[in-house]
Design a protein around this nucleic acid. Structure first.
Lengths: 184, 184
DNA sequence: GATCACGTGTTGATTTTTCAACAAGTGTTT
DNA sequence: AAACACTTGTTGAAAAATCAACACGTGATC
């Protein structure tokens, strides 16, 4: 992709997040963004149809970035190193995810993340054929909610414990299920 | 001027100065700059004919910026507030001017600054007609060298005293001449 | 001596961004 | 009700940056 596109999209999103932290979503205008980013107002419309679209794309982007840092981990799934790299990434980009998760993300970020993780959990459970014998919906939502709950708690409380600790604790809590459901 | 021009020139100069600090002028290549700045190599040639031209323009820009901060001061010339704002600006942009003054500016920055200040001093002295009675060349170069010497000493020694002190001291040293030559 | 890797400076076609102007909507002030 | 300031979303022409490719020079390596 053209470097200019990457750069301007990045710039617009960063500016948007800055303003989100400063004044909240409703008070943000397209003119605000253009002015702060020092780009032409028309350029914003070249990439996003309106500020709602921008919020969507923003959420989509940061959900993807978060999950990529999980996929890039050496092991495939549910391994300690996968969780560790997720939490390390969160730690590095703390301010952004704190913003997206709390108040101003308007809950959209959380629900988008939830859907994708639930999807993944369903697939992981489905690998072992014998798991299909009983209702996996309950299991999926139990595990997904648990994981996201921990993630939210950790971010909203400004990372009260370090990455190492939260990873270990999470692995301990998941241990019974990794044995039962995962086919590795 | 088009925002794109301002931005790319700024970006190229900043990248150039970064590389100047890192590896020195000779080892810098145009490709280096383009790569680090994440712009097309051709774009650099759109603004500068080669790296020597870039160095020139860079020096010119930062000499002008320095002098603007003098001109923008409320009083016209040789006033404490004028000097103060110059040193405040230098303090704010310490790393850049340290770089331009020492080794890697290759002396071009100093001599360019010298010429302009000498020019200004000549003009200031010339305001009072009776000054023309004797050789002003000597006076001009005495005052210019003195001022630049102080400036260089202050920067090269990493600002060993604060802005207030250096301004006062300089005003004290210049006092006999402000009385004699300036027409305020 | 040939080859290779690398930097230079330039070209032309393509894409993105800019700018200024527009019509339309909204809320505030007089 | 009219005037005002401000934001929205869109338009077309102009300017800029991008990309891939070129010929050329230089120095190292085989």
């Amino acid at each position: 992709m053209d470097r200019r596109i990457q750069k301007t999209r990045q710039l617009i999103m960063n500016t948007f997040l800055d303003l989100l932290a400063e004044k909240g979503f409703e008070k943000i205008t397209i003119s605000d963004i253009a002015e702060r980013a020092n780009i032409n107002r028309g350029t914003v419309y070249l990439h996003y149809v309106d500020k709602f679209d921008l919020l969507d794309k923003c959420i989509e982007t940061y959900v993807e970035l978060l999950l990529n840092h999980c996929a890039n981990s050496t092991d495939t799934n549910l391994s300690a190193s996968a969780f560790q790299s997720v939490f390390e990434y969160l730690e590095k980009n703390f301010t952004i995810y704190k913003l997206l998760l709390s108040n101003e993300g308007v809950g959209f970020f959380r629900s988008r993340l939830y859907d994708i993780i639930a999807q993944t959990v369903t697939e992981v459970i489905g690998i072992k054929p014998e798991n299909n014998a009983f209702s996996n919906g309950i299991t999926t939502h139990f595990l997904t909610s648990g994981f996201i709950g921990v993630l939210e708690w950790w971010i909203n409380n400004s990372m009260p414990c370090n990455v190492q600790e939260i990873t270990e604790q999470l692995m301990f809590l998941l241990e019974p299920y990794t044995k039962r459901f995962v086919s590795l």
